[in-house]
Design a protein around this nucleic acid. Structure first.
Lengths: 332, 332
DNA sequence: AACGTTTTCGACAACGGTTTCGAAACGCTA
DNA sequence: TAGCGTTTCGAAACCGTTGTCGAAAACGTT
């Protein structure tokens, strides 16, 4: 059912149908009513694709995630909640998990979708620094570090300080850090917070106890095992994300170590899974839904060409993190 | 940067560039190399929209959800996991929460996206029964009851029987049922299971204790309050989804009733939130990720015109449910 | 050198809409 | 009724890409 079909049925031209559909001025009330009737009757709906190709406006915002893992899913929920009422619709596009090997997939997806299918985009944990694309873009928690893009992120350093201070306050001194891959900004900042807090407390950081965990279960178990099998085993591990913290607890169990009896573990993110872990994970909460909300607000401003954000070019919103104490930590 | 720009830069026609991009036969190796170079240099990426408009093939599967609530989010994760390796990409489209008032939004979205932007669609909890659209469609857990669409759902009746038997086994006899809105198939089936189990145990169902909860916090608290303020209060409530079960526990707290001390509560779905509840909710687990996986398999078969599914027209996959006992239920 | 084959490439017409612009019909005044 | 402004509508161009098809060029053969 195309617009031409409707036009033929209504005895008018396609142009007129288009005007009726889009409420354009210049069609008589009689005609509008008649065409509306036909549209209703046959259940015509205009093709988003064809429409956008010509008009370059779709009222759709794209959210690009590498894959639908817990973190990005929470972000999506936040953006979805914030978007209703703005007149836009949300379209989530997944890179299909090939983000690791396929650097720059964001840029590619953006140019495939941008300018025609979506009016603006939210990039979740993008690995690109700049994206001079066809449409306004906001980045959430960019992996690649400070960029020229408008950005929403959480206070990683502060969160890491809180987590480390929590462990120190429980009497731990020999604390290991399990980070993400090198080059990930969030991991760098969390390590920075960790080192800051350790230094402030006068606790030494053993280089042997700082490892790359890679944020994923598969990549984290190896390093976690090395940490826990260390001759001078740490009494606590601060993992830079929940997934690797949970993996660490799994390794501990395998080695016959009790958490939190023999080992305290702190994570980062507070994904829904963290509370399901055994024991429930003490972690640093990122306001993921709020981050999504902020990103939408920022993006809508940008798309409207809001003047207040224009001068400095890139706007940066940083939201607070907080410590959530659960069952995986205990006084030494 | 359009294909025409690239063509001009490379000194060839747009048609030739298109052939290079799509690896079509009939371009000399020299030309291919040259055009590839130009494309690489300027970072050209073909527009998904324009391409699909013409070729009617996008290798994109759409998943349509009314909104990004916990249930649909889990389904999305399942589909996303299953889709990698099939050569398709996933695009999640949200109706923006206006599903309640906007009946048939699925059909509309389908005709807006189908045939041009997506090659097939997965509908999550659709309210339409038939959708004779342009593309193959699979429905997950349709709200509207048995349809002619290929469907993936969970065994609602069996799950409800399990939940009710659990309560009966704990000695409860006066059990309330808090359902969804009338007309929702899942709610109907869960009530059916509830009544079956009650009847089998010879326990009477008090019509006064069967209420419409509406599956949402806002709609569930009222009926929940009525149940708990009843002169002859039930000792247990079986809520037809987790959200209303959690709402019921909130009402109980307000009324000074302890769960599970004074009242046992069972939910349905096992959304991630159910374990966060205080106390953690005993519930019936739907294999949400598996449902997503099955839907993708079914859809891909359909899109390939797999002959084995063609004969009967509609294929129905039903996955098992199971009881997850946590802290919200106790022997009477 | 003449001729048939095969390759290589580009002009052109779609795809399903929107937008512009001019012509026709209409309404109003003088 | 002539003159003029205003509505109303449709023809045609366009958005960025792909598929078809014919012409030109290159190649191979005698």
């Amino acid at each position: 059912m195309t617009i031409t079909d409707v036009a033929r049925l209504a005895g008018v031209s396609a142009a007129t149908v288009s005007k009726v559909v889009n409420g354009r001025y210049g069609v008589s009330a009689r005609t509008v009513e008649h065409v509306r009737g036909v549209i209703e009757e046959v259940g015509y709906e205009s093709s988003l694709v064809a429409r956008s190709l010509r008009s370059h406006r779709t009222n759709v915002i794209g959210i690009l995630v590498a894959e639908f893992e817990p973190f990005s899913t929470e972000i999506i929920k936040g953006t979805a909640a914030a978007i209703s009422g703005t007149g836009y619709e949300l379209l989530a596009y997944s890179g299909g998990g090939r983000a690791e090997e396929d650097a720059g997939w964001e840029r590619r997806s953006l140019s495939r979708l941008g300018g025609t299918l979506i009016d603006g985009a939210i990039l979740v944990t993008p690995t690109v620094v700049g994206a001079a694309g066809a449409v306004p873009v906001v980045a959430i928690d960019p992996h690649a570090g400070p960029s020229d893009l408008p950005t929403v992120d959480a206070d990683n350093v502060r969160g890491a300080v809180l987590a480390t201070e929590h462990l120190l306050g429980l009497g731990h001194r020999r604390i290991a850090f399990l980070g993400g891959r090198p080059g990930l900004e969030s991991s760098r900042l969390r390590e920075e917070g960790f080192r800051t807090a350790m230094a402030a407390a006068g606790a030494p950081v053993d280089p042997d106890l700082v490892r790359v965990g890679g944020y994923r279960p598969q990549t984290a178990t190896g390093p976690a095992h090395e940490l826990l099998a260390h001759p001078d085993r740490p009494s606590a591990v601060f993992a830079a994300n929940d997934v690797s913290a949970i993996a660490t607890m799994g390794v501990a169990r395998e080695l016959g170590l009790s958490v939190p009896g023999d080992l305290s573990v702190v994570g980062f993110d507070n994904v829904p899974e963290s509370v399901l872990a055994e024991p429930p994970l003490t972690t640093v909460s990122q306001p993921m839904q709020a981050m999504g909300t902020s990103a939408v607000q920022l993006l809508v401003q940008l798309m409207n060409g809001s003047p207040e954000t224009a001068p400095d070019g890139g706007t940066h919103v940083r939201l607070p993190t907080e410590l959530v104490v659960r069952g995986s930590t205990r006084a030494l």
